[in-house]
Write a protein that binds this DNA or RNA. Sequence first.
DNA 1: ACCATCTGGTTGTACGGTCGAACCATGCAG
DNA 2: CTGCATGGTTCGACCGTACAACCAGATGGT
Lengths: 132, 132
Amino acid sequence: MRFVRNFGLHQPDQTPCGQPLPVSEAHAMVEIAREGQLRQVELARRLRLEKSSVSRLVTNLVNRGWVHREAAEGDGRGVLLLLTAAGTTAASRQADARRDRLTALLDRVPDDQRSAVVRALQTLAEATGEPF
Amino acid sequence: MRFVRNFGLHQPDQTPCGQPLPVSEAHAMVEIAREGQLRQVELARRLRLEKSSVSRLVTNLVNRGWVHREAAEGDGRGVLLLLTAAGTTAASRQADARRDRLTALLDRVPDDQRSAVVRALQTLAEATGEPF
DNA sequence: ACCATCTGGTTGTACGGTCGAACCATGCAG
DNA sequence: CTGCATGGTTCGACCGTACAACCAGATGGT
């Protein structure tokens, strides 16, 4: 709880890393950038959002010129998401901001605990991987 | 990011611990319960919220019958927050839910890493204690 | 003692993220 | 072919938050 508050995770309309970007959009960018291309339904699954929310979210990203919607091959219903050139640039800029912010954070934890903290967060992410 | 999503921290209108309660209200209850009494301005500082948001938030808690507003002694402007009897009950119920949820989460991390995870989160909370 | 300034709270307004439901089109199995 | 499931979109509503304007009580300098 303290970490959520202190880190600014309670305000969904801006990144804790200083980017003027809603948290969910930033997360979406990370997922799409990581995979190169992503089905919209898969994005919803990863972000734990309803498909309607994702539809809007993606529309926002498209309006920013970062994402391109494309028909998924082999399934006439699906939508495939890809980063535009501008999107790739934006994603790496955001990654930089994230890295800066996280190193600034880690600078404030004792040296001998840094790796433990990082490992702990990975462990937590895995532990929450599937509903419990 | 994965942890935030998986744990459900991205939806502010319900607790990740299953309580039908906005996250910020739950956090407020924790703070008030911990201190016994709390100045509203101090609650805003801890929750990292604007005073206007806190004013509304507290009004909600009052409407639930959980919190009692009282004039702060020694300062005619201030408001002192106290839990009602119902509020104390609710707080402990929420604490139970939180404990259950967190032990369920910890059950999914390897035994030899549990204490490390808990310690890491404490470290992170401290590291973000003051703006950086 | 007075006035300007600061501080704590409240209210009005606007914004935006999320969900659920209704709807449509496409895939799929019987 | 028919019924059901799946992927997306749009609509409506809800609610948490910030910012600005405002008020009242506190504070410090002259």
